[in-house]
Nucleic acid binder design. Structure first.
Length: 483
RNA sequence: CGGGGCGUAGCCCAGCUUGGUAGGGCGCUUGGUUCGGGACCAAGAGGUCGCAAGUUCAAAUCUUGUCGCCCCGACCA
């Protein structure tokens, strides 16, 4: 990537570990150097710093609009769930019990019943739906909430797995199984489009296997993406609950022919984990690389020789002429330009705009793209149009690059040995046939370290037999080592 | 929960083996010179050495315990 990130002596900026030497350390370095997050007093809980939170706000804003466009309404449920309510659906509680945090005291008094901090809010939505749904005229109910949840994970990593994380959880109730299924797929598609169009992260859409599905769900659908190091990241899930929760919680309505029916439900969630995904899909050895659509600052203006007359004024003037359509900032700090270049590269700002006395004379400026390092001189007259075009280019280039990378790391295999050697040589997605038995799924994981990521909607016939047992194959599965 | 590593100024770390006045770099503050790829000079501020016991005339250093963090595995979004 050209000379971007090089210091005077030609070495790379030293604060960030080389991603090819130590990917995990590189990730941590980027989180810290880009000012995304800090560790907090509570183990496994991170502080979202302004820059990191701004990315989440941009995700939230754009995704929330899609939810509203598809007829969903936002609500807010309580933070705490009583033990008895949590236990109403047995698969659900069994799935979450090992990682819930409990509140047992109110002031100095012991509570009569302990309360858990929501790990997810199915139970709250269900008990509410049981009250407010009586007639088919009350359906569908399309609710969503933006909140944080707590899951007491044993090992944590900033954004990827924290004990408290921010998300949205959609919970819907429908009259028929078919409507619930349509909603489940609709929202999976919303997530997939969002990942590709906004986050520039290509995804594989598919269904989770029995053993990977959500606790209490009938079917779980997922979008899976591939990180730069070849590990998979579950990037969003959409569940069809059928009428299982409705039966456990007594959510019934009277249909048009005056018969009592159970509702069919869905839930779907998308979390701050994807900030980690952004880092690991687009980042490079100079730090973060943000797709323009989620970049808190899309263009950073670095004034050169800012003490000279007219430079700062010109920088501010450019800023205000652009700020209607572009998120733009002037770096007025008294650091040297070179320092600022590195700083904004680490933070992944898509475009740097340099303006100095020589440029002002010629009515021009220099812009540098974060994704390619490409440096061009632009006239100030058509700046807004040129920048908007460049931002669009960056957005699509990042998606294209990520797609190329993923495809280059997607292989087919017909034996466990082949899977294992591919995963060790060049980790990524492996397409292989599966007979459908959980035993084979477990064995693949045990032998190769790869779990089933999904049964993709787009099926291919790699072979007729299961990669593990050699019996007749049921479907083609994407496998991979996952975060 | 297993395996490894680390806790000394805001950050990164030296000092510990062989106990004896708390160190360096970066950052920060003030003044000046600089400014197209992490500038330089000068002067300053900043520490109960993670915590607790113990050994000792004396502990950052030795002993025991404890807490926390990071990395790698098993579980999860």
């Amino acid at each position: 990537m050209a000379d971007a990130g090089k210091a005077k002596d030609g070495s790379l900026v030293k604060e960030i570990t080389n991603m090819d030497e130590d990917f995990a350390q590189w990730y941590t370095d980027v989180v810290k150097k880009a000012d995304l997050a800090d560790y907090s007093e509570i183990g496994g809980c991170i502080i979202f710093r302004p820059y990191g939170y701004a990315i989440w706000e941009l995700i939230q804003k754009q995704m929330d609009q899609v939810f509203k466009d598809t007829g969903h309404e936002n609500v807010y449920m309580p933070l705490m769930i009583s033990e008895s309510l949590l236990q109403k659906e047995k698969d659900h509680v069994a799935g979450f019990a090992p990682e819930v945090a409990w509140v047992t005291m109110g002031g100095h008094e012991k509570l009569p019943e302990k309360l858990c901090i929501r790990p997810t809010s199915e139970t709250l939505f269900c008990s509410h739906y049981a009250k407010i749904i009586q007639s088919y005229r009350d359906l569908p109910k399309l609710y969503n909430q933006w909140c944080s949840v707590v899951r007491w994970e044993k090992t944590t990593r900033p954004f990827l797995r924290t004990r408290e994380f921010l998300w949205q959880e959609g919970h819907t109730a429908h009259a028929t199984a078919q409507e619930a299924q349509e909603e489940t797929i609709r929202m999976l598609n919303v997530y997939a489009d969002f990942c590709e169009n906004v986050l520039a992260i290509p995804v594989i859409k598919g269904q989770k296997t029995e053993s990977e599905k959500f606790a209490g769900a009938e079917r779980t659908y997922t979008i899976e993406s591939l990180m730069h190091d070849g590990q998979a990241l579950q990037s969003g899930t959409s569940h069809n609950f059928g009428d299982g929760f409705a039966k456990a919680f007594g959510i019934q309505y009277t249909d048009a022919s005056n018969k009592l029916q159970y509702v069919h439900q869905t839930s779907w969630g998308f979390t701050t984990r994807m900030i980690g995904g952004l880092i690991m899909v687009h980042g490079d050895n100079s730090g973060l690389v943000l797709p323009p659509m989620v970049a808190p600052v899309q263009v950073i203006i670095v004034p050169i020789a800012s003490h000279k007359e007219g430079v700062l004024e010109k920088a501010r003037e450019i800023k205000s002429s652009l700020s209607k359509t572009i998120r733009v900032k002037v770096d007025e700090s008294d650091k040297k330009p070179g320092w600022k270049f590195s700083e904004h590269e680490m933070k992944g700002v898509p475009i740097r705009l340099e303006i100095g006395p020589k440029d002002i004379e010629k009515n021009q400026c220099v812009i540098v793209r974060r994704d390619t390092g490409e440096k061009v001189t632009l006239s100030l007259d058509s700046l807004e149009t040129d920048l908007e075009k460049a931002l669009k280019d960056i957005q699509s280039n990042l998606l294209e690059k990520a797609r190329t990378h993923r495809d280059s790391r997607t292989c087919s295999a017909t034996s466990l040995e082949e899977m294992g050697s591919i995963l060790n040589a060049k980790p990524g997605f492996i397409k292989a046939m599966w007979c459908g038995s959980p035993e084979c799924e477990d064995k693949v994981k045990e032998v190769t370290g790869a779990s089933s990521r999904c049964i993709p909607f787009e099926q291919e016939n790699i072979s007729d037999v299961c990669v593990c047992c050699g019996k007749k194959a049921e479907s083609m599965v994407f496998w991979g080592r996952a975060y």
